[in-house]
Write a protein that binds this DNA or RNA. Sequence first.
RNA 1: GCCCCGUUGGUGUAGACGGCCUAACACGCCACCCUCUCAAGGUGGAGAUCACGGGUUCGAAUCCCGUACGGGGUGCCA
Length: 474
Amino acid sequence: MSDVRVRFSPAPTGFLHVGSARTALFNWLYARHTGGTFLLRIEDTDVTRSTPEAVEQIQHVLRWLRLDWDGDLVLQSHRFDLYLAAADRLLDEGLAYECYCTEEEVRARNDEALRTGATPGYDGRCRDLTAAERAARAAEGRPRSVRFRTPDEGESSFDDLVRGTVSVAWSTIPDFVIVRSNGTPVFFLANAVDDADMGITHVLRGEDLLDSTHRVLALRQALGHADRPVYAHLPLILGPGGAKLSKRHGATSVEEFRDAGYLPDALVNYLALLGWGPADGREVLTRDELVAEFDVARVTPSAATFDAQKLEWMNGEHIRRLGVADLAGEVLPFAKQRYGGRIEIRRFEAAVALAQERATTLAQIAQQCEFLFLPDDEVVIDDDARSTIAGLDGVGALIDAAIAHLETCEWDVEHIDLRPVVTGLGLKPRTHMKVLYAAIEGRTAGLPLFESIHLLGREAALTRLRRARDALAP
RNA sequence: GCCCCGUUGGUGUAGACGGCCUAACACGCCACCCUCUCAAGGUGGAGAUCACGGGUUCGAAUCCCGUACGGGGUGCCA
């Protein structure tokens, strides 16, 4: 047990992006590696964007990824009093001030500054209002927000575990709002208060928050906390081409990967490799191995491109490492979705075992096994198969010979072997076996044929061959 | 515009002390082998003047400066 305390603190405003998942993962890995504590805090200070569905969603996804958090979920929306009290203290001490500018006014002046080439940001109009001036504005019915007074000179700096010392001149950071005019606290305030209150020792988060760290740290200090957590800003995950990873690149939310048939361990493994890697260069790692190897000091500072192909490969690796029974259990929901009622579990597991060595996703396994659970008259030979078969000779004779063979052979895989039948007709298995695949499985490629026929049973196999005979070589 | 961060092959990483880097591993790609299909697996190959330009040094992917490019921020979003 160590005193490391980290937290994952997403805003519940939509689906959990893989980038957020990676942040959650690194925090979890760090906590588990050090024997520390991993907390989950929902940053729902923006009441207009946060939804309870998203809060649920986040927890579901984290559970599915098996990133278990310690203690109760912390909802910032339940802790507004704490933040508002902190804002009042800052106000009392003159470290923050009441601002009576409306959002529109601020934006208009900001746009103007941008246009004339002046420094944008809040211009400090309400910075030094007297009590009388404030009262007058309040009497006018103007909205009141609270701004934090940032230093006018000097610089802010902190040591980042992945980027070293990061500094910036205070003159580039204008006074910022910590309490909105609707009375709700803003991220910076809530974040500073909670990290202190929850005893957070290390903050691992996305690089997009790098600049905000100066503000959070200044607030924290103003609130009377002399110590600071250690920060580590994780590189961003980009889409192909270096653009932001978005829907146009395919899946971006964890749920989408789950539904596409990815294993949580594979996704976790892949995500861990984005911005980090174990010292020995191994890539396919179990959860325990990741925990054992993880080290924030080895996190890369540069952004990583999300590579869907590598994830797919990784998923295949994890599929192959699973026991057949476990794998079948994972595939079952996908199979049920397609052909739920007809599944025979013994045959299903046998089929999964055949698919295991060639699959990359669970959905793909379910699809490859489907032909075994289809009524014989619903097996459709796809167009692709038809066109390749159309270019072959001796199709009719081949199917006839296969039928003749299967009518009488002993019913085990060794005797079901149809290679002698194909070669006996002077045909090549390499090309003509596809005909038989199509007849049995509906396509030219799929689970190994002889095992498949064995699992299917003699009658069904013969029926399918006869139907194919009519369909392909009338 | 301003501020911050980044930059090793198509992609992810390795490359602590500068010399063992004529740059390694993995994904992807190509070829071959294996093979009842498709895969998986095996072997081999192509692909990087380590963004560029200056320094420092006997020696730099590794240190310093500049430039370019990319990303992030600049919000009463987080």
